[in-house]
Simulated assay, not measured.
Amino acid sequence: MSEVFRRATVEDAQRLVDVTYGAYELIRELGLHWPAAHADIPMVLQNVQDNECYVLEENGIVVATVTYSTSGEAKAITDLPFIKWFAVDPEYSNKGYGGRLLDWVEREIILGTHGHGEVTLATAKKHPWLVEMYERRGYERILEIDAKNGDGIMYLFRKNIASYA
């Protein structure tokens, strides 16, 4: 088993589409309007170019991805660092890859490289398991948002990652 954590490149675009699109199947079924749920090559390339997109490879295969947003689209709701586009290839889910990647990005990138002691993310109240998953990971709900776009209530979560260092 050989795990590699690294920043994504444009050469990863097709694999990132495959991982993200597959992982977000339930999001599409729930009718949520999340850009990552409809990932295609131009969207992934834009994400990789505008943000810090990271991957976890297992034996040379990208199995998970998460993005540290540096493009500022979350600035309307938070000045804290924001993570998005978190996805694990369904063939590799429930094996801890996503958790290890998220831990690494929180610790090494957001805290270590950028020096931020807190991080935020958002998810939908109506998702059957994401809210509880993030709460188990130490995230706290800090805001309820209804953008009136059909997604219903979205929760903004915050985690103090400095206390986990």
Rank of each mutant, 00 (worst) to 15 (best):
V10Q: 13
D50G: 00
I110C: 02
L143A: 03
M133G: 07
K159L: 08
I61Q: 12
M154V: 03
V4N: 12
G115P: 03
D151T: 14
A8S: 10
S163Y: 14
T123Q: 02
T123V: 00
D103K: 06
E132L: 11
E144V: 02
I41T: 08
D103Y: 05
A162Q: 15
T65F: 08
E29F: 05
W85R: 07
G60D: 14
F82L: 08
V62Q: 08
D89P: 01
F5Y: 15
G99Q: 04
V10W: 12
D146I: 09
H116G: 02
I27P: 01
L143G: 00
D151W: 14
H33D: 15
I83Q: 13
P81W: 15
M1S: 12
C53L: 13
Y68R: 12
W129E: 15
A76R: 04
G31W: 05
K148M: 15
Y21A: 02
Y21F: 10
V119Y: 04
A124G: 01
I153G: 15
E52K: 01
M133D: 13
T9M: 07
F5R: 01
A13I: 11
P81S: 10
E135R: 08
A39I: 01
H116K: 12
Y164A: 11
E135L: 06
I27K: 00
T65Q: 13
E140S: 11
H114R: 15
M1F: 07
K148E: 15
V10G: 06
G152S: 11
V62N: 15
A13K: 05
L156G: 01
H127Q: 05
A23L: 01
D103N: 07
R136I: 11
D18C: 02
Y24T: 02
G117M: 14
Q49V: 13
W129M: 09
L16R: 01
V48F: 12
L80R: 07
I153F: 12
H38N: 08
V119D: 00
I83A: 10
A87N: 05
L101C: 00
E91K: 05
G150S: 06
A23W: 02
I83F: 11
L143R: 14
N94H: 14
F157L: 07
E91P: 01
L45D: 09
I27N: 04
L156P: 04
L56Q: 09
E106Q: 10
W85H: 03
N149Y: 10
V4E: 14
S69I: 15
R28S: 02
D50M: 08
Q46T: 06
N47V: 06
P90A: 08
Q46W: 10
Y21R: 12
G22L: 04
P42E: 12
G117N: 15
K125P: 02
A36E: 00
R6N: 07
F157T: 00
N47R: 14
Y21S: 06
G31K: 09
I110D: 00
A122V: 04
A87Y: 08
G138W: 10
M43Y: 11
H116D: 11
W34S: 02
E52F: 05
Q49F: 11
